[in-house]
Design a protein around this nucleic acid. Structure first.
Length: 782
DNA sequence: TGTGGATGCCTTTTT
DNA sequence: GGCATCCACA
């Protein structure tokens, strides 16, 4: 391995320094994975054993790809035993090995977010709290947030300030919910995603002997995407590296976009201070994008105050400017993108798979999808429901979970009456009360003989419970004898799931059946692969351990090849495409409406930075004047971020109009003529191109009669065509003649109110003056 | 106990 | 607009 031939100067320096701690700040497209790969290869070459190296990533996909690359460089045998995986998978492995120390069994279940929410919900219900005030989703994320900051229920409840704060927000019982939640997880022998990290951190903290073992084991620690680590992850890395200090973290503060999940950008910003003589390496040469794209992205991110100074540069061709396109509506935006895709595909011979359309929110995908479909462009949408989140798959998995961990209450609740076996809510409630009152008795034992344990049910219900217990027990027996595939197959048929799914032959049910079949195939494949690798331990428990941490990102299917990719900007991180389209570049969408602080805004800007830097050769940015959102047409201004990019790198929709400090789009003339109303009522908000432009909440909500919307917004035939006249979409103005379905024609005398409360006083020819709420009036222009 | 129409909500989401 | 959830009923 000759590093001189493989790496540039700074990459090589970063690879070769291994005496102590280091941070590698890797700009977008600077060969970060390459450096990590060769660093590990280099360590192996220097004589370090593979099993002494720990490499942590955030996704299974990243881990797998890096493992494959390392295997190619050093060969399979040298890389065998490498500890490479996600934080969650590595630490769940450690926790299973040490489970008894922290009061779990090695078969503990991993609750996904849906399980956590369901548990929170039942706790709220059992505590007799109002679920309108205590929303399970919000409570669950607050619990997650507390855990991410290593705040246990005990610590939380010892701080009176927390209680005062919760009281102020009308949720004084949060602390008790949190405590109950942790207790119930424990009783169910279950950990949520956060617990996998939290328990690891606490285990190391409380048991120096255990920590010492792992410190010896992991002689060298590498962490990818360090800008995305949260407090717990940082704490674990610190503890493991404390003894030898041989740790290397890699990341890019400019691409930190997960603070809403607890990621702390300060972890990477301040990492150097955590170790004495910590070396800092910067990878600044971008090998992905044209100079124009890199420069444009730099000029954007320069507007952020909080960052590690660096100069990313490209030595590839200058390339063409980023094209900024505005359209009247979101529909036309979709067609503008589709038209351009056809252009680059036909004229420049760019393959569809080298093209991606990126958006801020998943909700934007629908319109784009429609435009691409009607234009005959093959596409694939990332995100949405993953295979393992589908109801029928979760049902099957719940049975499997119950087999491995009969205390798993969320799984029990899911399957006890699915398929329907006459065990209704009341019976379940009565049963669960007794289960909770007897934490030392296995739930299955109570189900098998409910009357003996005082479950307050009739004989008929007791019999149904008994039968259910027998079913599960027969699965347990099967699991003693058989491999994962045979158990899963037996469950699918004997539980009645297959019969239920086969019962009706509607289209959606057909796919449910296929999904279950596909799931069985996946179990089979898992077993095959293990056996092929010489590992004959193909018990269900092994399959389940893997499956609970798997996501859809990991399942790339061959039939998805050569299609345009549609995804959120978040999902695009780490990927690259020849052509990138960034759509919906509007105020209140990108940056998001939810932005509340300078910090939030900087994160949105980084998100935009991530989006731009996905492009290798060409990037197009679009924004629409009107957009159908949450059932309403909303109007918005171009994103402030467009003004952050040095305009030397942009091709603007109307160059002449750009100089004055704001993008004035061609439709604004039209706008002024039609929207006297807006001028009169919102002049300070909509037409002030100065500071007012960037104020929050500047969307004008225009109630639109539903039918009319569809008719008037269908794009004509091609996207380039001038926009169709938006008849009754934009709102109405004083003096205008209108028509009402009951009152006939009339003239608007006055318009008052805001948003949904907007009213019009109308003088009808035949009915005289009436005051109508625009929201309901269904007026059309006469 | 299961269903259906009304009601409410709504960013991003590596595990 | 779309989806999940909930209460009212059969």
């Amino acid at each position: 391995m000759n590093l001189d031939e493989l790496l540039n100067e700074s990459q090589k320096a970063a690879v070769e320094y291994n005496d102590g701690a280091s941070v590698i700040v890797a700009g977008a497209g600077s060969g970060k994975t390459r450096v990590l790969t060769y660093k590990i290869a280099y360590l192996l070459e220097q004589g370090m054993m593979a099993y002494n190296i720990l490499a942590l990533t955030f996704t299974n996909k990243a881990a797998r790809e890096m493992r494959e690359r390392i295997m190619k460089v050093v060969g399979p045998s040298a890389s065998r035993g490498l500890w490479m995986g996600t934080f969650h998978s590595i630490f769940s492995r450690i926790l299973r090995a040490e489970a008894e120390i922290i009061g779990f069994t090695p078969q503990f279940t991993i609750y996904d977010t849906a399980d956590s929410k369901a548990l929170v919900k039942s706790i709220i219900k059992e505590m007799g709290l109002d679920d309108k005030v205590y929303k399970s989703g919000a409570i669950q994320s607050k619990i997650s947030n507390a855990k991410n900051h290593l705040i246990t229920p005990h610590v939380y409840n010892s701080n009176i300030a927390n209680y005062a704060e919760d009281k102020r927000y009308n949720t004084p019982e949060f602390g008790r919910i949190y405590e109950a939640y942790c207790r119930r997880c424990r009783e169910a022998n279950a950990m949520d995603f956060d617990d996998l990290l939290v328990y690891t951190a606490f285990l190391f903290k409380q048991r120096p002997d255990v920590l010492a073992r792992y410190q010896e084991r992991f002689q060298y620690i590498l962490v990818d995407e360090y800008q995305d680590t949260n407090t717990v992850q940082h704490s674990i890395v610190m503890q493991l590296a404390a003894k030898y200090g041989r740790v290397c973290v890699v990341g890019d503060d400019a691409q930190s976009i997960y603070s809403f999940r607890g990621a702390e950008i300060d972890n990477i910003l301040g990492f150097q201070r955590c170790f004495e003589n910590c070396k800092l390496f910067k990878l600044e040469q971008n090998y992905r994008s044209t100079q124009t794209i890199v420069n444009a992205a730099n000029s954007l991110i320069a507007k952020n105050r909080n960052q590690i100074p660096k100069t990313v540069y490209s030595r590839l061709s200058v390339g063409e400017p980023i094209e900024v396109v505005n359209t009247y509506s979101d529909f036309e935006e979709g067609y503008a993108v589709a038209k351009d895709i056809q252009h680059v595909a036909n004229k420049r011979f760019v393959a569809y798979e080298d093209i991606a359309v990126l958006y801020r929110t998943n909700a934007q995908s629908r319109v784009l999808e429609e435009a691409l479909r009607k234009s005959g462009i093959p596409y694939k949408i990332y995100g949405g429901l993953s295979f393992y989140q589908r109801k029928e798959i979760k049902d099957v998995i719940a049975y499997l979970r119950l087999i491995i961990n009969p205390s798993d209450e969320e799984a029990l609740k899911r399957v006890i009456n699915y398929p329907a076996r006459g065990i209704g809510d009341t019976t379940q409630q009565k049963l669960l009360t007794v289960v909770h009152d007897n934490p030392s008795v296995p739930a299955l034992e109570i189900i098998a003989d409910p009357l003996k344990y005082g479950v307050d049910v009739k004989n008929a219900a007791a019999g149904k419970l008994q039968k259910f217990a027998e079913l599960i027990n027969s699965f347990l027996d099967e699991n003693e004898q058989q491999d994962a595939y045979h158990v899963a197959e037996r469950v699918v048929f004997a539980s009645g799931i297959m019969a239920d799914v086969s019962a009706d032959t509607s289209v959606e049910n057909l796919s449910r059946k296929e999904n279950i079949q596909e799931f069985l195939n996946a179990v089979h494949e898992f077993c095959d692969q293990k056996v092929n690798n010489g590992d004959n331990d193909i018990r269900l428990v092994n399959f389940l351990n893997e499956v609970s941490l798997i996501t859809d990102q990991d399942t790339d299917k061959p039939e998805d090849k050569n299609t345009v990719t549609l995804m959120t900007v978040h999902a695009a991180k780490g990927l690259e495409f020849t052509n990138i389209y960034i759509v919906g570049m509007e105020e209140n969408l990108f940056p998001s409406m939810m932005v509340e602080s300078e910090r939030d805004l900087e994160e949105e800007r980084r998100l935009f930075y991530v989006a731009i830097t996905r492009a290798k050769e060409r990037c197009m940015i679009t924004y629409a004047k009107s957009r159908f959102r949450n059932g309403q047409t909303q109007f918005s201004n171009p994103s402030r971020f467009l003004y952050d990019i040095d305009k030397r790198y942009l091709r603007l929709p109307n160059d002449a109009s750009f100089g004055g400090g704001g993008i004035v789009d061609p439709y604004s003339m039209f706008d002024n003529a039609q929207c006297t109303l807006h001028n009169a009522q919102f002049s300070s908000r909509t037409h002030d191109r100065g500071e007012g432009l960037f104020k929050k909440r500047e969307i004008i909500k225009t109630p639109v009669p539903k039918q009319t919307h569809k008719g008037s917004f269908k794009p004509v035939s091609s996207a380039s065509k001038a926009p169709t006249s938006p008849q009754n979409v934009m709102g109405f103005y004083v003096g205008e003649r209108v028509e009402h379905s009951t009152f006939g024609q009339g003239k608007i005398l006055e318009i008052t109110g805001d948003g949904d409360n907007r009213k019009a006083r109308i003088d009808f020819d035949d009915f005289g003056e009436k005051q109508l709420l625009l929201k309901y009036a269904r007026l059309t222009k006469a």
